[in-house]
Structures are given as C-alpha cells and as structure tokens.
C-alpha cells in the first residue's frame, strides 16, 4: 500500500487507530477460521485423531495440569539459549568474514556445506556428543541458527556508503571508530534480517533435537502424543510451538523498530531509494 507515489505522513494518525487497523483484519480472519473449523468438524462428525476440533485442542492444552506449558518452557529455554549462542557465533564469524577475504575463501565452502546438512541428520550426532540433556538441544539449535546471521552480518558490514567512508577518512578516523560509528550501525538492517531467520530456526532446532532424544520439551510431547495417537495433545503442542515462534519473532521485530527507526524498511513514509 505504501508503495504508491503519494507521500504519506511520517506518523500514523495515532498509535491506537494504527494498531486497530493493523490488528483487526487478521483477528477477524482468525475468528472466522476457528468458527468454520469447529462447525465443520462437528457437522461432519470427523474423528478427533484425523482433525480435532478447536475446542478439543483447547481442552488438551489444559489437560494433565497444564503440563504442556512446562514443556513449552523447556523448549523456550533451549531455543533462546541456542539462539543467543548461535547468534554470537554468527556475529563473530560474520565480522571476521567481512574483514578477511582469506578467511572467507578458506572457510566459506565448508560452512555452506555444513549448512546444507539437514538438521535431522546431524542432530543425533550432536546429541551423542553432548548427552541427552539441555546442552545438546542448545548445541543443535545453535548449529541451525548461526549461519543466517553470519552471512547477513558479513553483507551488512560491507554495505556501508562509500562516500561516508571517505568522510571518515578525511576526519582521520581509526579502524575501530570506522567499525563502531559507521560499519556496525550500517550493518544493523542486515543483522536483523539474520536475527529474524535465526529466531524462527531456533524453535525448529530445539524441537528437532527433542524428537531425537528427550524426556521433556514440546518435541518430546509431540512424539509421545503421536505414539499414543493422542492427536488433540499433538495439535496443542504444535499450537504452542507456533505461539513461541510468533512471540520470539515479535520481540526481535520490536527490537528492530526500537534500534533502527531510521532504516527505510521500518519507516512508514514511502521514500524511494
């Protein structure tokens, strides 16, 4: 919508009405889907193991003293820890890549190769190495979620404006000053692209690791529910994993809005270039 040529005011009329106009359509869509789903399943008499109704999933969510929330918490801890660890590795590797062509040439093929390994294939190996506790889940998650940031960090650090670089040159800035005051801030829009990918991958990584070997967490719940064909519980676990993913993503998006309000992809006004 904002891609038209007309110039929009930089601020929406108010935060409240902006929120309503943004949040209302998806909320209504959600309610409609739930209603059709519930009515359809009830009307057709579909068995719960094929497609449980929303009300059955809701019940399953609270069944067993709400143990799903405990398992969700476990998965969240794994995902967050793996995300932080993977992102740290991504930042370091991306920065080294941005500054050293030799290191990039030497390592990049192997990192790309490692990244093409399906996580389900490598997860058992990592779990064998790190045991079946929390550490191995964090390791799998970190493995999955460092690559997008490493690549984007590298690209971001190299994407600075050449004229701005000359401004720093004429001002006799040191390399550290160039990094901190120019290249790092310039890289932030790219960094957030990487972080948004990582945050989604981190939930996948944690759950896949739990599939392989775990006695807690959403992956464990999903596997256990599948073996006993307790499909409403499986759906409830799936719902929770989606909620976690959405919440994580929203946190990163908010952080982005707060940290780089100057960037064109964040701004409300449609300005070309």
């Amino acid at each position: 919508m904002t891609q038209t040529t007309e110039v929009l005011p930089p601020q929406a009329p108010s935060r409240l009405s902006g929120f309503v106009s943004e949040a209302l359509p998806p909320t209504l869509t959600f309610i409609a889907i739930i209603a059709v789903w519930q009515a359809g399943v009830t009307w057709a008499g579909t068995p719960a193991y094929i497609l449980p109704s929303p009300s059955r999933i809701w019940q399953a969510l609270w069944a067993g003293g709400g143990s799903i929330f405990y398992h969700s918490g476990v998965t969240m801890v794994e995902a967050v820890a793996g995300f932080l660890l993977g992102s740290m590795m991504g930042v370091i590797l991306g920065t080294v890549f941005a500054y050293s062509r030799l290191v990039t040439r030497s390592l990049m093929p192997f990192i790309i190769a490692a990244n093409t390994i399906p996580v389900v294939a490598i997860a058992p190996i990592i779990i064998l190495w790190f045991g079946n506790g929390l550490v191995s889940k964090i390791a799998v998650t970190a493995f999955l979620s460092f690559f997008p940031l490493a690549l984007n960090m590298m690209k971001g650090l190299q994407s600075y404006d050449r004229t701005v670089m000359q401004v720093f040159h004429v001002a006799a800035a040191t390399d550290v000053q160039r990094f901190l005051k120019m290249r790092l801030p310039s890289s932030l829009p790219y960094v957030f692209v990487g972080l948004k990918l990582n945050v989604t991958f981190s939930v996948i990584g944690a759950i896949v690791a739990e599939f392989v070997q775990a006695d807690r967490g959403l992956g464990f719940v999903i596997m256990a529910a599948y073996r006993t064909l307790n499909m409403p519980r499986l759906w409830a676990a799936m719902l929770m994993s989606a909620v976690i993913g959405i919440v994580f993503f929203a946190i990163v998006a908010l952080l982005e809005r707060w940290l780089i309000p100057w960037h064109s992809s964040i701004r409300d006004d449609a300005k070309t270039g």
């Binding site: 404006d161 004229t163 701005v164 000359q166 401004v167 720093f168 004429v170 001002a171 006799a172 800035a173 040191t174 000053q177 005051k181 120019m182 801030p185 780089i260 100057w262 960037h263």
Partner: peptide, 27 residues
C-alpha cells in the same frame, strides 16, 4: 581539511547535531 561531497553523506542514524559533531567526536 574539510570535505563536502555532492552526496551529503550524512549518517542516517544520527540527528543533525550528532552528524555535525562527528569529526570532533572522532578527534
């Protein structure tokens, strides 16, 4: 030496005050 380029080359994440003060900050 001061240099003014055709492209103003201001840092998008800094306000005017912080942009103008940049060379002094570097100094």
């Amino acid at each position: 030496i001061g240099f003014v380029f055709q492209d103003s080359a201001l840092l998008e994440w800094r306000d005017v005050l912080q942009n103008v003060a940049l060379p002094l900050e570097i100094e």
